[in-house]
């Protein structure tokens, strides 16, 4: 059963719901061995990103499989959703404009192999993040031969 496995993960979201300005010691141990130590949010500051975009709230999630396709190539990646909705339709041409420079970054630009690398990225930029649980299918062992298995004489009510 996969359900208990999934449950055993502590709620990652919970730690983030507290009004945390900057979680202490965020980068992994490897970072402290490095010559230059990167403090949370520093990357964002030195790259000249405006103040308001350093305090973004983002959601880290793993996109679900497209409902109509069975291929697994795109399953298991992690993305960052910037929860931005500042959009409008250009009245002249009908194009969509957005007031948020990050709107398309999350949609198209960024994918991560694991939740941890997405988290590290968010920490580096000083974003307040929430990690959403990834849902995986419960796989049951089935075999084609089972369909033809002898299950004894048919019961009266099933006949």
């Amino acid at each position: 059963m996969a359900a208990p496995l999934r449950r055993s993960l502590p709620s990652l979201g919970r730690t983030l719901l507290s009004p945390s300005p900057a979680p202490a010691r965020m980068l992994s141990a490897a970072a402290s061995d490095a010559l230059v130590e990167i403090k949370p949010g520093e990357i964002g500051m030195v790259s000249g990103i405006p103040e308001e975009h350093l305090r973004r709230k983002v959601v880290i999630y793993s996109p679900a499989r497209t409902a109509s396709q069975q291929g697994s190539g795109k399953v298991g990646r992690w993305k960052i959703n910037f929860v931005s909705t500042q959009k409008w339709e250009n009245p002249l041409m009908g194009w969509t404009s957005t007031g948020d420079p990050y709107a398309n970054v999350g949609e198209a630009g960024l994918t991560f192999d694991s939740a941890d690398s997405a988290k590290a990225f968010a920490e580096k930029h000083g974003w307040d993040y929430v990690v959403r649980k990834r849902h995986t299918p419960l796989l049951k062992a089935k075999s084609y031969a089972e369909n033809f298995k002898w299950r004894g004489p048919p019961k009266a009510e099933q006949a």
Binding site: A67, K87, W88, T96, P137
Partner: peptide
Amino acid sequence: SRGPEVMRIVPRLNED
């Protein structure tokens, strides 16, 4: 969604 408009809704897996 496309731009400011919801175009469709599709399901997402959640076994629970």
